[in-house]
């Protein structure tokens, strides 16, 4: 069912990035940034929950949000690759977050118009959170890019190495095309130029160079993942798989 796949794709994206950011808990460069990253992680996991609940309802087979998050395997996950790549250093995490936030902000803005009332409501609620994420990651891009020589060089390296994962965000697969034609999904083609403009503007302010390469990695949205996702799921699903149905 295409709609189910579409919702799962959105839910998986939020969950995996949320999980990645949660790995910073207790490891942030300072307490304040540790909490900032953890807050964003919690926002994303919260968004994932709403989406999984909706997916479970749409599927109508009695599976719960937990089943969908914790009992599916790597090839079932439909998130784009960018959210599963490792955190790297703080700059790598910020660059990944920034690229994603620009996309996510534009995406949720458009998703508010979805014919699916629940998706529209989730978009409206999430947008408030995502606005702050974007503000946070954009500020850090400027700060690191226009900071010291070392911070500039590190964040430029991060931008260059993550760049090849950005294309997938705004490239439509079959599921997304079908959802667009039904008025449920978002037109990523129309998001693409907005994404490029916004990224360009912040990188310029940050005195960073925008990569010119157009070669992009993809496959995540169709279940073809990097090796990293398996490790994430192993850690994330361990408890639920060892003690099925465990509750607090």
């Amino acid at each position: 069912m295409t709609k189910l796949k579409y919702i799962l794709q959105l839910a998986d994206t939020a969950l995996i990035l949320g999980h990645r950011l949660s790995e910073w808990t207790g490891h942030g460069p300072i307490l304040e940034q540790d909490m900032a990253l953890t807050n964003i992680a919690l926002d994303l996991v919260g968004q994932a929950r709403s989406l999984y609940q909706h997916a479970a309802e749409v599927e109508g087979k009695g599976r719960t949000e937990d089943d969908l998050a914790y009992l599916r395997t790597t090839t079932d996950f439909l998130n784009p690759l960018i959210v599963e790549i490792p955190n790297g250093n703080f700059g790598d995490t910020i660059a990944r977050q920034f690229f994603f936030d620009v996309y996510n902000h534009t995406f949720y803005t458009e998703l508010q118009k979805s014919k699916d009332a629940t998706l529209s409501a989730i978009a409206e609620k999430s947008l408030k959170e995502v606005k702050y994420h974007l503000r946070y990651s954009s500020d850090w891009m400027r700060r690191l890019g226009d900071g010291t020589e070392e911070s500039h060089q590190k964040i430029q390296t991060a931008v260059d190495s993550i760049w090849m994962y950005t294309g997938e965000l705004t490239t439509m697969n079959e599921v997304e095309k079908e959802m667009l034609s039904e008025g449920i999904g978002v037109n990523l083609e129309s998001i693409k130029p907005i994404w490029t403009e916004k990224v360009k503007a912040v990188l310029a302010e940050a005195t960073l160079t925008m990569p010119e390469s157009t070669w992009m990695q993809s496959g995540g949205k169709d279940g073809k993942h990097t090796e990293h996702l398996g490790f994430i799921l192993a850690e994330m699903q361990h408890l639920q798989r060892t003690h099925p149905g465990a509750t607090w």
Partner: peptide
């Protein structure tokens, strides 16, 4: 109180640390 490089960051940190 908290540490920040400038008032913009202090504002964001305050939001994250004290208004959760």
């Amino acid at each position: 109180s908290l540490h920040a490089t400038d008032s913009t960051m202090a504002m964001e940190n305050a939001r994250d640390v004290y208004t959760r």
